[in-house]
Amino acid sequence: MEETVLKESPLKIGDKTFNSRLIVGTGKYKSFEETREAIALTGAEMVTLAVRRIELDKSKDSILNYLDPKKYAFLPNTAGCFNVQETVMTCQLAREAGLGNMVKVEVIGDEKTLFPDNEATLEACKILIKDGFVVLPYCTDDVVLCKKLAAMGCAAVMPLAAPIGSGLGVRNPYNIKLIREAVDVPVIVDAGVGTASDAARAMELGVDAILMNTAIAGAKFPLKMAVAMKQGVEAGRLAFEAGRIPKKLYATASSPIDGLIDV
């Protein structure tokens, strides 16, 4: 078998192709150096960034000095936005700041759970698509909602596995599977993954990619977790593409039955 067949297939989002199916956030690390090192170890080719006010009197250093734009596609997000106007303006500012036109739209609807406001998300996506953005919305794991987002022209849908930063893993694998079947754009599980087995399980469901931040940055040893997540995502995807055996209640012998010794 050719070696290329033994690798996961590449991921296409909009007009971009990625060899890694892990997308990572750049927040919560101890330093810019740690951010750079951890992200390099994940093998990710797309990283999320937030857009915030410049602190006029503070250090001039920037996360962008640590991320090679030739190595990473930037995915500015609208984290912290609670309404449509803020969200749209944040995307426009990101584009104007030179971060490109691919955006992760998140409109938060509830501070405690950080669940998205789906109604506002739909509205913001509509405006942004019309404005020429490649839109990747963070949303709940709702099949109908994801179908609507895909139908209006979103380049991917990004249902949550569990609340942001919760580390609970995929809470409703059946919904995620249904979403994968229901839309013809990439499905990216965004938020809620806690450890490498969560990532592998999500990928085994057939989703196209996973976006995570806290699980790596918040680990006791982020660099080790970066490697673990890379391997988890790769293993899960390969297992999905390989096609697992069906689950059965009783045993099936894996050694030949013929040729047993007579005693």
Partner: peptide, 21 residues
């Protein structure tokens, strides 16, 4: 006037960038 730039971030609430000072 709003003047913004890119900072490290993942999802909601993950925006604060490392304190460099």
């Amino acid at each position: 006037v709003e003047i913004v730039h890119a900072v490290g971030g993942g999802t909601a609430g993950e925006a604060p960038e490392p304190d460099k000072n």
